[in-house]
Amino acid sequence: MLRLSKLTDYAVVVLTRLEEGEGVQAAPDLAAATGIAEPTVAKVLKILAHAGLVEGLRGARGGYRLTRPIAEMPLTEVITAIDGPIALTACVDSAVGHCEAEDLCPVRGRWDPVNRAIRDALSGITIADLAPPRAAPVAPPARPAAPLAATA
C-alpha cells in the first residue's frame, strides 16, 4: 500500500489554511485554526519554507505566508519536501545503494516507468484541488422594487 506520512497530510492542511487566511499567519494561530499541535505546525512550516513553498517573516507581525497560490502548487512538491522522492520501491530512477539485493535483482530499473507514472499523476493535482471549497460570498438581500406611481 502506498501511504503518505501524517506530516505530509498536515502540510496540505497548513497550506490550505494559509491560503484561507490570505496573509501572514503565525504558527500558534495556524495550530489553533487547524487543530494540529503547535510544535508539529512549526516543524511543517520549517520544512515547507526550506522547500520554498512558504516564507517566514520575522518581527512583531511575523509569521508565514505562501510563496504562490496553492492552485499553482503541485501535490508532488509537498510530498517530496516532506517524505522525499515519490516511488513505490527503493529503486528510485535507478538509484544505487538503496537495496542490499540490487546487484542480483532481476527487475532492477523496471520500476522506473511505474514510479514516473505515479509522479506524473500526482503532479497533475494541486493543493487547491484538495482544499475544501470556499463558501460563496453571501449577497445582501435584494431591495423590493419601488411601487410605480399610479397615473390617473
Rank of each mutant, 00 (worst) to 15 (best):
A37W: 03
T76W: 03
L48D: 04
A150K: 08
T8W: 04
I86A: 10
T151R: 14
A152H: 10
Y64G: 01
A11Y: 07
L88T: 12
P141G: 05
R61K: 14
R108T: 05
M73S: 04
D129C: 02
R65Q: 15
A51I: 08
P39M: 09
R3G: 12
L66A: 05
D103Y: 13
A26F: 01
H98D: 04
I47E: 06
P133M: 01
T76Y: 02
R143Q: 13
A95S: 14
L75R: 04
P28A: 00
A51G: 07
G62I: 13
P106E: 14
R143E: 15
L53Q: 06
R61L: 15
G124A: 13
P140E: 06
I79L: 04
A95R: 07
K46E: 10
E72C: 08
A60M: 10
D29C: 00
D129L: 00
E55P: 01
L48Q: 02
G63P: 11
L122T: 09
G52P: 04
V78M: 00
V24Y: 02
Q25S: 11
L88S: 09
T80R: 14
G84L: 12
M1K: 12
V96F: 12
V92W: 12
A33F: 00
L148D: 05
I47A: 03
E72P: 00
N115L: 02
I36K: 01
D29K: 09
R61T: 14
I70W: 00
G21T: 12
G23N: 01
A101T: 09
T67Q: 05
I36W: 06
R3M: 14
P140N: 04
G56F: 07
K6Q: 13
P39A: 08
Y64M: 02
A60G: 09
R108F: 15
P141D: 10
T126Y: 01
L15G: 03
L57C: 05
A42L: 08
T89Q: 00
V54A: 15
D120N: 04
V12A: 08
A42E: 08
N115R: 13
Y64V: 12
L53A: 04
G109C: 10
I36P: 03
E77P: 00
G52M: 06
D29R: 11
V44I: 00
L30V: 04
A33W: 01
V96P: 02
E77I: 00
T126P: 00
A27K: 04
G84P: 11
E72T: 10
L148M: 03
G109Y: 13
I47M: 03
A149W: 06
K6V: 14
P141I: 09
A32D: 08
V41K: 03
D93R: 15
G62P: 13
V24H: 02
A117T: 11
I125F: 10
I127C: 03
A149P: 10
A33D: 13
A90N: 15
E22L: 09
T80L: 03
R119L: 03
A149G: 10
V78I: 06
D93F: 08
R3Q: 14
V14N: 03
R134N: 02
L104H: 11
A150F: 05
I82D: 01
T34F: 10
L122N: 08
R108S: 13
L57K: 13
